[in-house]
Amino acid sequence: DHIPWITAVLPTVIICVMVFCLILWKW
């Protein structure tokens, strides 16, 4: 059976995008 890697990667991607947007917003 396949491991849904997207389910494991998606939260990390969302957190990175939120942090990236927060850094851009504070500049």
Rank of each mutant, 00 (worst) to 15 (best):
D1F: 05
D1E: 08
D1C: 05
D1W: 04
D1L: 12
D1Y: 09
D1I: 08
D1A: 11
D1M: 15
D1G: 13
D1S: 07
H2C: 09
H2T: 12
H2D: 14
H2R: 11
H2M: 14
H2Q: 09
H2I: 12
H2Y: 13
H2N: 13
I3S: 10
I3M: 04
I3Q: 12
I3C: 02
I3G: 11
I3L: 15
I3P: 04
P4L: 14
P4N: 14
P4W: 02
P4G: 10
P4S: 10
P4I: 12
P4H: 03
W5K: 04
W5S: 03
W5D: 03
W5Q: 02
W5G: 06
W5I: 06
W5V: 06
I6Q: 15
I6F: 02
I6N: 14
I6L: 14
I6G: 01
I6S: 05
I6H: 09
I6C: 14
I6T: 13
I6M: 03
I6P: 13
T7D: 03
T7P: 05
T7Y: 10
T7S: 08
T7F: 04
T7V: 09
T7R: 06
T7H: 09
T7I: 06
T7G: 08
T7C: 07
A8M: 08
A8L: 07
A8C: 02
A8T: 11
A8N: 03
A8E: 13
A8K: 01
A8S: 02
A8V: 09
V9P: 06
V9L: 13
V9S: 12
V9G: 06
V9W: 15
V9H: 12
V9Y: 02
V9N: 03
V9I: 15
V9E: 04
V9K: 05
V9R: 02
V9C: 02
V9Q: 06
L10M: 04
L10R: 07
L10E: 03
L10P: 08
L10G: 10
L10Y: 15
L10Q: 03
L10V: 10
L10T: 12
L10F: 05
L10S: 11
L10N: 02
P11Y: 11
P11K: 07
P11W: 04
P11Q: 05
P11R: 00
P11T: 14
P11N: 01
P11D: 01
P11M: 13
T12H: 08
T12A: 06
T12P: 13
T12F: 12
T12M: 13
T12Y: 07
T12L: 14
T12S: 08
T12R: 00
V13I: 04
V13K: 02
V13R: 00
V13Y: 02
V13A: 04
V13S: 06
V13F: 08
V13C: 06
V13G: 03
V13N: 07
V13W: 14
I14C: 11
I14S: 14
I14N: 15
I14H: 06
I14W: 11
I14Y: 15
I14M: 11
I14L: 08
I14R: 00
I14P: 11
I14V: 14
I15K: 01
I15S: 11
I15G: 03
I15E: 00
I15N: 01
I15A: 03
I15R: 00
I15F: 02
C16W: 04
C16V: 06
C16P: 03
C16S: 12
C16N: 05
C16I: 05
C16Y: 01
C16A: 10
C16G: 03
C16Q: 09
V17P: 05
V17Y: 15
V17H: 03
V17M: 08
V17Q: 05
V17A: 07
V17I: 14
V17N: 08
V17K: 05
V17D: 04
V17G: 12
M18D: 00
M18R: 01
M18K: 04
M18L: 14
M18I: 09
M18C: 09
M18F: 11
M18N: 09
V19G: 04
V19M: 15
V19K: 01
V19H: 00
V19T: 14
V19E: 00
F20Y: 10
F20Q: 00
F20M: 00
F20P: 11
F20C: 15
F20V: 13
F20N: 00
F20I: 04
F20G: 10
F20W: 00
C21H: 10
C21N: 05
C21K: 02
C21I: 11
C21S: 12
C21Y: 14
C21E: 02
C21L: 08
C21G: 13
L22S: 11
L22I: 13
L22R: 07
L22W: 07
L22G: 10
L22Y: 10
L22M: 01
L22E: 01
L22V: 11
L22N: 02
L22T: 12
L22H: 07
L22P: 09
I23M: 03
I23P: 09
I23K: 07
I23Y: 13
I23W: 01
I23A: 13
I23L: 15
L24W: 03
L24Y: 02
L24G: 06
L24R: 13
L24E: 04
L24H: 13
L24P: 08
L24C: 07
L24T: 09
W25K: 05
W25T: 07
W25I: 13
W25V: 07
W25A: 10
W25S: 07
W25E: 03
W25N: 11
K26D: 00
K26N: 01
K26E: 09
K26P: 09
K26W: 02
K26F: 05
K26L: 09
K26S: 12
K26A: 04
K26C: 11
K26H: 05
W27T: 15
W27V: 02
W27Q: 06
W27E: 03
W27R: 05
W27P: 07
W27G: 03
W27K: 04
